[in-house]
C-alpha cells in the first residue's frame, strides 16, 4: 500500500519528542481560542448593543482610560510570559545539543530524494528509512545541493538540511509502524514528490534489516536479469548509481544495491512495481518532470532486461 489510511497529523504523536510538542500545541490552542472568542464575543456584543439609531445624540467622547490600557497590556504580557517559559523548556527537552555523540543515521537531502546512511555499517538507502523503536536516536541532516527540510509530522519537529552545515534531530519512536513525511522547504521542480517514509521496527527486526541490507548485491544467476546487469554496466548507470558488489559506485543518484526491497520509488511517488520501473526508464521526464535522471534510449529487449535486473536487486 502506497499511502496509509490517516494523513500524518501533528495531533497523532508517535514519538516522545512529538508528545512534548503535542502538549504545547494543546496549551496554545486553548489559550488562543480563548483570546479569539473574547474578541469575537466583545465584537458581537458591541455590534448588537451600539447600533446607530435615528436621532442618536453624539455618544460620549471618551479619549481613553489609563487603567484599562494597563490591563490591555498586562493581560497579553502574562500570556506571553507563560508561553515563553513553555517554549524554552520544551525546546530544551526535545532538542538538546548533539555534543560529541555520533549520529545513528545520516540523512542527506538531494534534488529530489532522501539518502540515508547508517554509520558503522555499509548500508545506504533511499527514501524508506528504517529506524528502531524505543531508543533515542540522533539523526544528522545534510544537503548535497539546495536546502531541503526533513519533516515527519507524527515524529515531531522538522529540521532543515542545509548545504555546508550539518543539523541534528532527536527522535524516540514509541511503537513500530510506518510514518510518512515530506520535504518541507521548497527545493525545485519536484519538491512535491520528495516524500519520506520512516519504517519503525523493533530492535531485533531492525538489526536483521541492517544486517541484510549490509550485504552486497547478488549477481543474477543468468537469464535476462544477467543481461540487464551487463546493460547496466555498459549504459554507464554506475556513474551515478551504486550497486555494492559491482563496479557501479556513483553517488549522484540513489543507491540501488537493494532497490527491489523498497516498496515505493521516486521518493514516494509510485509503488515500486516492474511496470513503473519500466515507465521510468523509458522516459523519466514524463514520469517525474524536473528529476535529474537522464533519458536513455534502449531497444525494447534491453529495456526489459534492465528492468529484470533492477527488480532482482532484493
Amino acid at each position: 500500500m502506497l499511502y496509509s489510511l490517516a494523513p500524518p497529523s501533528i495531533f497523532d504523536p508517535a514519538s516522545r519528542e512529538a508528545d512534548r510538542l503535542y502538549a504545547l500545541d494543546v496549551y496554545f490552542i486553548v489559550a488562543s481560542l480563548a483570546v479569539l472568542l473574547l474578541v469575537i464575543g466583545l465584537l458581537i456584543y458591541i455590534v448588537l448593543k451600539f447600533r446607530a439609531q435615528p436621532g442618536d445624540e453624539e455618544p460620549r467622547q471618551i479619549g481613553g482610560n489609563r487603567k484599562l490600557e494597563i490591563l490591555m497590556i498586562g493581560g497579553p504580557t502574562v500570556l506571553v510570559a507563560i508561553f515563553f517559559y513553555l517554549t524554552v523548556t520544551t525546546m530544551r527537552a526535545v532538542h538538546p545539543p548533539a555534543g560529541n555523540r555520533s549520529p545513528d543515521v545520516v540523512i542527506n537531502g538531494r534534488q529530489f530524494w532522501w539518502e540515508a546512511s547508517y554509520p558503522g555499517t555499509a548500508v545506504t538507502t533511499a527514501n524508506e528509512i528504517h529506524l528502531p523503536v524505543g531508543r533515542t536516536l540522533l539523526l544528522q541532516l545534510r544537503a548535497a545541493d539546495v536546502i531541503h527540510d526533513w519533516w515527519v509530522p507524527t515524529l515531531g519537529q522538522k529540521m532543515d538540511a542545509i548545504p555546508g552545515q550539518s543539523n541534528h534531530l532527536w527522535v524516540t519512536i514509541k511503537k513500530p509502524g510506518i510514518y510518512d513525511g515530506v520535504c518541507s522547504e521548497f527545493c525545485g521542480a519536484q519538491h512535491a514528490w520528495m516524500r519520506i517514509r520512516v519504517v519503525a521496527q523493533p530492535e531485533a527486526e531492525y538489526r536483521r534489516w541492517l544486517q541484510e541490507r549490509g550485504q552486497s548485491a547478488r549477481t543474477p544467476a543468468g537469464g535476462t536479469a544477467l543481461t540487464g546487469a551487463h546493460i547496466f554496466k555498459n549504459a554507464t548507470c554506475g556513474n551515478c548509481h551504486r550497486v555494492r558488489g559491482t563496479d557501479a559506485s556513483g553517488n549522484a543518484g540513489p543507491d540501488l544495491t537493494h532497490f527491489a526491497s523498497r516498496k515505493t520509488m521516486l521518493a514516494g511517488m509510485l509503488p515500486n512495481t516492474k511496470e513503473n520501473v519500466r515507465k521510468w526508464l523509458q522516459n523519466p521526464q514524463a514520469v517525474k518532470p524536473g528529476a535529474l535522471m537522464p533519458q536513455f534510449k534502449y531497444p525494447k529487449d534491453s529495456l526489459n532486461a534492465l528492468v529484470d535486473y533492477l527488480v532482482s536487486l532484493q
Partner: peptide, 21 residues
C-alpha cells in the same frame, strides 16, 4: 486576530518546528 494568533504560534519555537513551511 486569527492571523495574529496563528502568528504568535510561530514565536513558540517548538510549534514553529512543526508548522513552518
Amino acid at each position: 486576530t486569527i492571523g495574529g494568533l496563528s502568528g504568535v504560534s510561530f514565536a513558540v519555537v517548538p510549534i514553529d518546528w512543526q508548522l513552518t513551511d
